[in-house]
Design a protein around this nucleic acid. Structure first.
Lengths: 146, 146
DNA sequence: TATTGTTATACTCTATAACTATA
DNA sequence: TATAGTTATAGAGTATAACAATA
């Protein structure tokens, strides 16, 4: 039992996961910084990211995506809507459901925000050479395939 | 300019970073779930993680680590202290400074929490074979060296 | 009756500014 | 006077429960 735990803990995947935790920290800070630049709170930024232009989403679907209760989404969307970044519309098939979609302003901020987020930190782009970067990308592609 | 941006965007490191964003999401959920299991709010869990047993830390240092204002730390530590997980003590060299340290209970919860967090998700431990896991670990070690 | 979204409530996190107690 | 931490205040996120409109 103890031996099994030790073996489990010794998996390179676990150490890789721990190292990714550090990158996670970096990513987290990058996310907060980028969100603040656009005057978005973290949940607002997550919501905007979850709303690709032209793909309306129900409030409950957004709540599921944000992993929070429906009731929270009301306030988060209220604030995005008051800034004119998203809009609500009753769904055609069921008038209880409200469909969210990004406005033109929202789409433009969304794109700028996501472009800002997609630049790798120096740890990746400078400390790894081109071949190593490709190797890392390929391993992650495989891990996340499907 | 546009060409340079395109070149920059095409770096494998950027794509790797994007893929890591997905893993980040997984890690984020794992973190929230693990924190909730121990009835810790996310900032409380981050604070506990920042306090290795036997290494007291000033309130302001913890604030810096959590990247929030000093005033927030007061409340976060209040709640941890009321559960008996950490304790405050005026520092010897300067009685304005308060040193935080985990109690025995705090250290035990901290260890369990961190053990819970260090297990890699299936995406890493099952979809990659042992050699690939080692390769991933080595690349991340290099990226994060020092 | 069941479901979608809202409202009400209570607690936590967050930043700013004013305060205290030390230095 | 300058600094470490606290308190006061206000806004935002969170969950639970009760509610409205619709199905």
């Amino acid at each position: 039992m103890a031996a099994a735990q030790t073996a489990r803990r010794a998996l390179p995947a676990d150490e890789a996961w721990g190292l990714m935790g550090e990158l996670w920290h970096v990513h987290r800070c990058a996310f907060f910084t980028a969100a603040a630049e656009f005057e978005l709170s973290p949940p607002q930024a997550m919501a905007l990211r979850a709303l690709p232009p032209g793909e309306p989403m129900a409030m409950s679907a957004l709540a599921e995506h944000l992993r929070c209760d429906n009731s929270n989404v009301t306030g988060i969307v209220d604030r995005l809507e008051s800034r004119g970044l998203v809009e609500r519309r009753p769904a055609d098939h069921d008038r209880r459901v409200k469909h969210l979609s990004v406005t033109a302003d929202g789409a433009s901020i969304r794109e700028a925000f996501m472009a800002r987020m997609q630049t790798a930190p120096a740890a990746l782009s400078e400390r790894l050479d081109a071949g190593e970067q490709r190797a890392l990308r390929n391993l992650l592609r495989k891990a996340l395939a499907e």
